[in-house]
């Protein structure tokens, strides 16, 4: 038995699949693919799969991770890749099948690209907003209280690129067990005073603490 890490892209209409639905989808993909995946031994045996990082509904991802175990050691990564390719819906694509090198809890940063449509004035205001030394945002806690905090120090990298209808913002945000920042938090705050449309949020590559690509 060995561990296998599936790296996949999720785009198109598949971005409307919630995390919970994604779990069910992957179980069915595995069943369709006939892969010798290890099943739990409980009362309700099911394929044992783990997702590294949930993705918000509506976001596109370029580097999503799902781990499982293969019971047949003769089954190569190439075999796994081909079996999954046939069984995945069209908007979910296999990037690679690898042997996991890092543990899921080592995950630390995620790259985000946010496509925005707005006029020139909002374009500048938004850049100014993001370039401030302090960005106070509101977050609902699990106990349904609203807590406010400065998100700016958590934004590790920030860059802009002007596009035809607005701009593209790239940023690196903390993710994983220790700290997690959803870019929606920042843009919801910005939208209180600036008018713009978030057209698409793409989550790019994932990194560990040392900024090495998660793999």
């Amino acid at each position: 038995m060995r561990n296998v890490r599936l790296i996949y892209k999720k785009g198109g209409r598949a971005k409307y699949i919630s995390h919970l639905d994604m779990n069910r989808l992957m179980l069915r993909v595995i069943k369709r693919s006939n892969l010798p995946v290890w099943f739990t031994k409980g009362f309700n045996p099911h394929a044992f799969i783990t997702f590294a990082l949930p993705l918000s509904l509506g976001f596109v991802s370029e580097y999503d991770i799902c781990d499982f175990r293969i019971t047949d050691d003769d089954f190569s990564n190439e075999n796994v890749k081909n079996a999954l390719k046939k069984s995945l819906p069209k908007d979910i694509e296999v990037v690679d099948i690898i042997e996991p090198q890092m543990k899921v809890k080592e995950l630390c940063f995620a790259e985000f690209k946010i496509d925005i449509e707005c006029d020139m004035q909002s374009n500048n205001s938004l850049k100014d907003f993001l370039n401030q030394d302090e960005i106070i945002v509101e977050k609902m806690t699990k106990k349904k209280n609203i807590k406010t905090f400065d998100v700016k120090p958590k934004i590790k990298k920030l860059s802009f690129e002007d596009t035809k209808n607005g701009l593209k913002v790239s940023m690196l945000l903390p993710c994983g067990g220790e700290d997690n920042v959803n870019p929606a938090l920042i843009f919801d705050e910005a939208s209180k005073n600036i008018s713009f449309d978030v057209v698409l949020v793409t989550r790019g590559k994932l990194y560990n603490k040392k900024m090495q690509l998660f793999h």
Binding site: G12, R13, A14, Y16, S18, D21, R28, L57, P89, D91
Partner: peptide, 16 residues
């Protein structure tokens, strides 16, 4: 169209 709509998966199609 799907902005702010509950369970957008109802309206997207694209299923396997």
């Amino acid at each position: 169209l799907l902005k702010g709509v509950q369970k957008p998966g109802r309206y997207t199609g694209g299923e396997y």
